[in-house]
Design a protein around this nucleic acid. Structure first.
Lengths: 144, 144
DNA sequence: TTGCTCCTCACGTCACGTGAGGTGGC
DNA sequence: TTGCTCCTCACGTCACGTGAGGTGGC
């Protein structure tokens, strides 16, 4: 068996750089409950792991691409967080039926995100088509 | 010849409703110079025309879909505004060479917007593909 | 004349940015 | 020990929201 994966720990500045944010943003997300506070080990500094990188990346992506408010985002991501936690607990202790229910909830959650992403994509495609048409017209006038 | 098109005039509340914004937003855009102030005819009320509807709609769309700041937007839209004005002036007085130059500048402007829109669309497509993949995996575990 | 919409301050809010002044770890 | 990063206030900013109190037009 492989030994426990080396749990790399990041300080807040590293987490910020890895996710294209700033320490202030990370602290703000913790302040409003969007992100769990990095563990304050012995000292006073926050320490983060790989899963925090993934989480912040997801938050930033949905924030930028879907234009959601942080409150809307926390509802969306909250569901997933709860799911991840419960999944960990049930992975060993859960009955097959309970696991099945968890996965079905996960599906619903993914579908919700897919709806949002697809709606946005369609809007962008429409705008793109209009711009292409506009360009065609200008070009037509340029070369009579 | 057709008579002059009926120049429909809107008050700020109507303009807001037609563009999915609020009077406050319209006034704010005027305040920062993104929008020309509606003509204050005899009274004190602002009055807008069809072209203002188009402009606000464009602003809102780029703001929401591209996530640009209003300052970035004003640079993007400013170019187009100047273009529209100059186009009006040159439509009668301009030489063919001048008109050609204007159209070439218009092309550059449209291309800039297209780049932005396409970049966004690609990011959304990537996110969409990842979500679809995630969903497939959860489904696979649901039906072994 | 009565409502409704408009007007201008002006303070509040969300999502951070930006120092101020001080402490911790390689 | 020296830097660098971290810490917590706390005020500033952007893009508006939201009354407060008053005036205009169908």
């Amino acid at each position: 068996m492989s030994p426990a994966a080396p749990v790399s720990k990041f300080r807040i500045g590293e987490l910020a750089e890895l996710t294209g944010t700033t320490p202030r943003t990370i602290r703000y997300y913790e302040e409003i409950g969007l992100l769990e506070g990095g563990e304050r080990a012995q000292g006073k500094h926050r320490l983060y792991g790989e899963e925090d990188v993934a989480r912040v990346n997801e938050i930033v992506r949905l924030r930028d691409l879907l234009g959601l408010s942080l409150e809307q985002l926390s509802q969306l991501v909250e569901a997933e967080t709860a799911r991840a936690e419960i999944r960990r607990k049930l992975a060993s202790a859960g009955s097959p039926a309970a696991r099945r229910q968890l996965r079905e909830r996960a599906l619903g959650h993914i579908d919700t995100q897919l709806e949002l992403v697809r709606g946005r994509r369609r809007e962008l495609e429409k705008l793109e088509a209009e711009l292409v048409e506009k360009r065609r017209e200008v070009r037509r006038k340029l070369q009579p």
